[in-house]
Structures are given as C-alpha cells and as structure tokens.
Design a protein around this nucleic acid. Structure first.
Length: 431
RNA sequence: GGCGCCGUGGCCGAGAGGUUAGGCAGAGGCCUGCAAAGCCUCGUACACCAGUUCGAAUCUGGUCGGCGCCUCCA
C-alpha cells in the first residue's frame, strides 16, 4: 500500500502486513461543536484504520483532543476547564454519529502534562530549548531541518513564530522560536507546576508528548488537515526529533472543506456543525460525500453535492430491498487495487456501483461495511400494522379494485412508507 | 511576495500518450392497472497558448484562473 507523503512529496510505501502501522492524527481543539470540516481527518483516519485492519495489518491509532489552548481560555474566561470537558464530550458524541468506531487512544493534553514537562526538560538538557521569563522556547537555530516539512527551509521570514503578545517576543532569541511552556498569566484558570515555574503547555508540544506516549518514538503515519503543516506539524517534528525520537515516517494531510468557495473555518464563521449536517442529510450521505472525493483535494460542501450523495445512498439501499441471492466469493483484490493506490475512495465508490450493477451482493455488502456504510445493506422491516394494510391492498389489486388499492397506498405513505409492487407481492420501504 | 495544491461534459468526480470510467441530474423508451424500483438508449468533456510526438486531456514550457499555508484553524 502506498500513500502520498507531504514530507517527501511522493508516494510512501507502507511495510507489508502485519506492519505494525502506528498512526497519529491531530484531533480538534475543543471549545465548541466541531464542524463538518473537522470531521474530514476523523473520517479519513477511521477509514484507513478499518481498511488496514481488513488488509491484515496490526493498526494502532491515536487521535488527540487538545483541551489546553488560548482559544479555550478566551471562549470561557474563568471556566475554561468546564468548557473543555464539555466540548470533549460533544466531540465524541458528534463523531460517534458517523458510526465508524473510535480510535484506539484519544488522549487529552490535560492528562499528559507530566510527559509534556519531561519532554521539555529533555529539550532543555540537549540545548534545544531555553527558559525565559517563566516561558520555555524551542531554539530553532539548533535544528537545521526546521522548515523542511512545510517547504520553507531557510526562509527566515516565512518561519517566523510570533507570540500572542508582542512583548513576549522580546524573550525569544530568534523570531522563529516558539513556546513549549507558557508562564501562568492573570485570568487563566488552569495551571500546572513545572521546573520553570507555574504555567501550562504551549500549542504543539502536547502532540509530540502524546504521540510518543501512545505510539513510541517512531511511528508510521502522522495525519491532519493541511492547514496544520505550518506551524503545528513543523514544530511537532522539531520538538520530537530534537528530543531524539525518529517520529513520523510519513505525513498525510487532508484538503480543506469549502463553503461557497472559501475554507470552512471557525474564524470565518462559515461553519456547518457536523451534528447538524448529519441530522439534515443522514450519516450515509455525509460519508458518501467524503468518499466521492480524493482525500488531499479541497471539496466544496453544497446542497447540490449532498443531494447527489443522498441519491447514491438511495440507489444502494434500493438494491438490497427484498434481495435474495446465493453466497458469492468476495472480490477483495478489486477493492485493494484502488485503495492500496493512495487510498482512492472515489474509485472504490465507482467499484461499488459496478458491483451493484453486476449483482455482486456479498462484495458490495463487505465493501460498504469497510466504509461504515453497512446500514445501506440492512433490510428495514415495516411495522405489522403497515404490513396488514399492504396485504389488504394486495387483495384489492387481485380483485382489480384499484381505487381501494390506491387509497391504501396513500394511507401507507402517510405513515412514511412506500409500497412497491414486485413479481410475487410487495415490498415496504421507508420513505 | 514566498511555499504548496489544483483546473475534466449541467453537477460531483476517476483515469491517463492512441481503445465508452462511474455516479447524480436531464431526455426518450421497456416493464407496470397506476406508481416506485430496475433495465435500455442519448451528451462525445478534459482552462488557454505554444512545443515534443505519427498521435496529447494525459509529456514540456508559458499564460490565465481557483484554493490553502505563511497569524488561531482539520
């Protein structure tokens, strides 16, 4: 299996099964409900995990929840811890609606502070970090590789890491340096002890610490949105390699979701909460929407494409209505051919339609299940009362009383079900 | 400005130097008491300009356009 790697900008060949494949994906910073754009890396990581497991790999996926962050302090002055805890629950609740299962580990920054402090201490010992005014900064000049991941190596201007407050910049030896630890400030309602005084971790360091804690000093895949390449992932890489770990062997960065041509982001305010989208379109349509795109490309979220995805969900669902068939061999290799080539899910979807048209029921059921779409193959049985109405209608039709038959059909429709006449009777399907 | 991703038919999208992708929507038809579902037929696309080639949507160069990052962001 090969995947496009941001670091080398070329395809990375995964070791053969059983691996292991250790994956770290950047989860959200929790201070509000996640939007559908935040769901993309979650969906990608879970699909990849499911497919790799299906392929005989030993997979371990860690996906963090960042619950210490300036945004959180800002969003809930004086009660940031409560907000972060609540928003963490929202995140799990909302992503559970996708029905893809959970990562193996979902660590929180607040539960990883001792490891974070240890990691910073290691960097200070090695001369790659220095305390200043209660803060601790990473010394970029000591890490020559800095900027390689984001393709701006050597470009001092582009590698600038400004502090939140301009006056803290004076504490830094170099504008590119970034905070590993931040001294406690007035108004911040959470604080931890450290060798450098009370404070809290900076952004970036929690991911380095959590990845090492749950996956070890080296792992295969690091993922996240492509807006994290700089500075977040660049800094993670510097911290972890600086501390002596090999860190990620490859990086996968998913493209952004766009709403009317613009990136969907909290700061622009053009967001669609995941929960609302699932409620409006159904989880299957959301998943098919993601599946019909290549993971690295930006995609436009619009009513039109979601309607198209819903229609495809219907097409699959209709295929399984009242279906009976002999067991068949599963065409595993056909799916492997497209997914093992940079995880081409759009091509996989095309294959599913091909299986449907060719009556490869078992292959289709299996393939849909890999993508968490097994529901589409499930028969939904109607309540007995409706079946009775449909039986009455069948009798009416047999005696050619079509007025009565049509009346019964609309009565059934009023209750949200549709009657379809088939060769030897009828099928009831939810509308 | 720097770095990067990308431009395929009404829409979404694979593919890739010569042979129909697929889906959705639309038109016509078959089937049906009527429907629904399903099936059949129909669009002959690849931003633009040069170049390489017997042949390019696919390779090379350039132009234009969109998007992302460079500041919090998946």
């Amino acid at each position: 299996m090969r995947l496009f790697d941001t670091y080398t900008r070329s395809l990375f060949e995964l070791p053969p099964p059983p691996g292991p494949i250790r994956m770290y994906f950047c989860g959200p910073t929790v201070y509000q409900r996640i939007h559908i754009g935040n769901a993309r890396p979650f969906v990608l990581s879970m699909w990849l995990k499911r497919w790799l497991e299906q392929s005989g790999y030993d997979v371990r996926l860690a996906e963090n929840i960042t619950d210490i962050n300036d945004k959180i302090y800002l969003a809930a002055p004086g009660r940031s811890a409560e907000l972060a805890a609540e928003a963490s629950r929202w995140y799990v609740e909302d992503t559970d609606l996708l029905g893809l299962g959970r990562p193996d580990h979902e660590p929180k920054a607040t539960e990883t502070v001792p490891e974070i402090v240890d990691l910073i201490a290691r960097l200070v010992d090695r001369g790659l970090a220095y305390p200043a005014g209660g803060d601790v900064y990473f010394r970029v000049v000591r890490f020559p590789e800095y900027g390689r991941l984001s393709g701006r190596e050597g470009d001092h201007e582009a590698l600038h890491n400004p502090s939140e407050e301009a006056e803290r910049d004076e504490l830094k030896e170099d504008p590119r340096d970034f905070a590993l630890w931040k001294a406690h400030k007035e108004g911040e309602d959470t604080v931890w002890e450290s060798p450098w005084g009370p404070g809290r971790p900076g952004w970036h360091i929690e991911c380095s610490a959590m990845a090492e804690k749950f996956l070890g000093p080296v792992f295969e895949i690091h993922g996240g949105g492509n807006d994290l390449i700089f500075p977040h992932h660049e800094n993670e890489l510097a911290q972890s390699r600086g501390a002596g770990s090999e860190f990620a062997r490859m990086w996968m960065h998913n493209g952004m979701l766009q709403l009317t041509g613009e990136k969907m982001s909290k700061s622009l305010g053009n967001i669609v909460p995941l929960r609302d989208a699932i409620q409006e379109w159904g989880r299957e349509a959301i998943l098919l929407f993601f599946m019909n795109s290549y993971w690295r490309k930006p995609i436009e979220f619009s009513d039109e494409v979601l309607e198209q995805a819903s229609a495809q969900a219907e097409t699959f669902r209709n295929y399984f209505v009242g279906l009976e068939h002999e067991p068949q061999e599963i065409e595993r290799d056909a799916l492997a051919r497209v997914l093992d080539d940079d995880f081409n899910t759009a091509e996989a979807l095309r294959l599913f339609h091909d299986w449907r048209a060719r009556g490869r029921t078992d292959s289709l059921r299996w393939g849909l299940e890999v993508f968490g779409l097994g529901d589409l193959a499930e028969a939904v049985s109607a309540p007995a009362a409706l079946v009775a109405l449909a039986e009455k209608r069948k009798e009416a039709r047999a005696s050619r009383d079509f007025d009565e038959a049509d009346r019964l059909r609309s009565e059934i429709e009023d209750q949200g079900w549709e009657v379809r006449d088939v060769a030897d009777g009828f099928e009831l399907v939810p509308k």
